[in-house]
């Protein structure tokens, strides 16, 4: 028996190792949402990100001058926009008070820099140099001055990984800013699309797409992109809307994390509704 085992091992060693490791990979694939696995992952990427952040800063110093010029230009444009918005804000505030609305929106922004990018056609992720200690939690939106970039996936003490819009695992409820119609947006590996849109829905080319208030992930309107194409789905019954994101995901270096997570009160209320049924 031992001879047979030794014979098989000697002749098929590489295949046996391959099969065992492939099975291990499949087991790991099925354990992705296991809290213990996520904890190990947080420790691993947290430790490595500390090294990466130093290297990333070193390599990116050459881009600082160009970035400064761009920021100066954006600053001037923003200054003009701010003065216009201030005027409109005063009017808006007065109108809201008159209508009896209570402005409860208070959105804390946590600044962070990107320390590494894992670029892939399907699973784009970013590692940022802010984590648990800065108050960042999984599920928080990541934005920059252009718009939405992604969602925090996991955190360690000082770092966090964010899934970008170009990640097949990120699906968001968005709406057309003009027609107020909601839809589910996702990355299909090639482009950002709003899927399963009935043909009667009013999406026009050039419409701005923002996150929807009914989203369980981002319950405030954050700019996402603009509609660039409207085409028939494969089945011919529903439309597919192509969205060009505002944020240039390849070039971003600094981001803000919007310090909001899904309202527990709202979540509990919705769960109660299902329980009653």
């Amino acid at each position: 028996m031992l001879k047979l085992i030794l014979y098989v091992w000697d002749n098929f060693k590489a295949y046996i190792v391959l099969v065992l490791l492939v099975i291990t990979s499949f087991i790991l694939l099925s354990q992705n949402n296991n809290p213990r696995v996520q904890k190990v992952r947080a420790v691993a990427f947290g430790s490595f990100a500390a090294v990466t952040s130093v290297a990333y800063d070193l390599f990116n110093t050459t881009q600082i001058k160009r970035e400064n010029d761009e920021l100066r230009e954006i600053n001037s444009e923003l200054m003009l926009k701010i003065s216009m918005l201030r005027e409109q804000g005063i009017i808006n505030h007065e109108l809201k008070e008159m209508a009896g609305f209570k402005d409860t929106v208070d959105l804390p922004l946590i600044p962070a820099s990107i320390v590494s990018k894992s670029l892939s056609q399907t699973q784009n992720t970013l590692t940022i140099n802010a984590g648990d200690r800065s108050g960042i939690k999984p599920g928080m939106p990541v934005i920059n001055y252009q718009g939405l970039i992604g969602i925090i996936q996991s955190t360690s003490e000082d770092f966090a990984i964010a899934r970008t819009l170009e990640n097949v695992d990120l699906k968001l409820t968005v709406k057309d800013e003009r027609s107020r119609i909601n839809g589910i947006m996702k990355w299909d590996g090639e482009e950002l699309i709003i899927i399963d849109v009935p043909k009667t829905y009013d999406f026009q080319l050039g419409d701005r797409i923002v996150t929807s208030e009914i989203s369980s992930i981002i319950p405030v309107p954050v700019p996402v992109g603009v509609v660039t194409e409207k085409r028939e789905g494969k089945a011919g019954i529903l439309n597919v809307i192509k969205v060009e994101p505002f944020a240039e995901l390849l070039n971003i270096e600094h981001v803000y994390v919007l310090g909001i997570v899904q309202s527990i009160q709202k979540k509990n209320l919705e769960l109660n509704f299902y329980k009653d049924k």
């Binding site: 990427f45 699973q123 992720t125």
Partner: peptide, 14 residues
């Protein structure tokens, strides 16, 4: 790579 980059754990390994 899976642990550090945040991609689906097991996919790169496989």
């Amino acid at each position: 790579f899976d642990l550090i980059s945040g991609s689906l754990l097991g996919s790169s390994m496989l």
